[in-house]
């Protein structure tokens, strides 16, 4: 895809970030002036396990082109095992999407600790690039008159 076209499409990516890790990493990336794209719309949650997966697809239907769930690394969840439960839920929602012929890569699960500012910036950049390449999501056209 040529550069001009990529410029045209600015994806919207909703990030549900755990307060204890990924949100802190986002702050750190900010203070360190590490660049990450404006496409990311962060929402602070208390743990990756507090996000019902229906909220991920609700964001996709409302207009997001992708969603990220960011939690603490395995073993590091502030509430001991919330991230393991979150991983099951993400596996379930991705499987449902794939099963019905949707692009399941529009949901991303990442473990990013509070000290991983650079990883945060890298993941946000790479994911934005990936979603740009894919183009707008058609999930947002569910129950609408638009789309193909």
């Amino acid at each position: 895809m040529n550069e001009e076209k990529e410029k045209e499409f600015e994806p919207v990516i909703v990030g549900f970030f755990c307060n204890w890790c990924t949100s802190a990493a986002a702050d750190m990336a900010g203070t360190a002036r590490l660049h990450y794209p404006p496409s990311i719309r962060p929402i602070r949650v208390m743990c990756s396990s507090t996000v019902d997966p229906v909220y991920l697809i609700r964001a996709l239907q409302e207009g997001a082109d992708a969603t990220i769930l960011g939690g603490c690394h395995p073993g590091d969840c502030h509430y001991i095992n919330g991230n393991y439960k979150a991983r099951r839920r993400v596996a379930i929602v991705k499987t449902v999407l794939k099963s019905l012929g949707f692009d399941d890569e529009r949901i991303l699960l990442e473990w990013i600790s509070g000290s991983e500012g650079p990883k945060f910036a890298r993941v946000m950049n790479e994911y934005t690039e990936l979603i740009k390449k894919k183009g707008p999501s058609d999930f947002k056209y569910i129950d609408s008159l638009g789309g193909d």
Partner: peptide, 22 residues
């Protein structure tokens, strides 16, 4: 505006997908 018109109610398909997920 953004979706060239929407169907109402907007939570119909999501209900079924949500049930599948749950």
């Amino acid at each position: 505006d953004e979706k060239s018109g929407i169907r109402l109610p907007t939570d119909k398909t999501l209900f079924h997908l949500g049930r599948l997920i749950h």
